[in-house]
Amino acid sequence: MQRAILTVPTLTRYCNELLILSIIGTGKKHGYDLARELEEQSDGFFGFNHGTLYPILHKLEKDGLIRGSWKQEGPRRKRKYYSLTAEGKKYRASLLQQWEGFFTHFRAIIGETAP
């Protein structure tokens, strides 16, 4: 299994990965579904260009953390749905743990220095 090492330069990457893995973890999603759910569930806080999702999704798929499968919808329409693999679930749990560690340390500092 891949191991994410959460550091300041990798924050954005692992934040995006955790968000995407968490949304896909709730059921099979295609790109647009995913982008909408991210926006809706965060009340627009995580609103980003949908095009930037593809490299993240394809990288996760290449690493075996999610599985993309094509589904025929009607005679001329086929969609690529992503689902979480067993490896992806473990990776998501590991990421979550690291984010929790990050927030603990972050709050410890912010909490002490906050007015």
């Binding site: 295609h30 647009y32 086929k78």
Partner: peptide, 13 residues
Amino acid sequence: RILCELKYDLEDA
């Protein structure tokens, strides 16, 4: 495959 994925996401949007 990438173009197909983009095409149907565009159409959905």
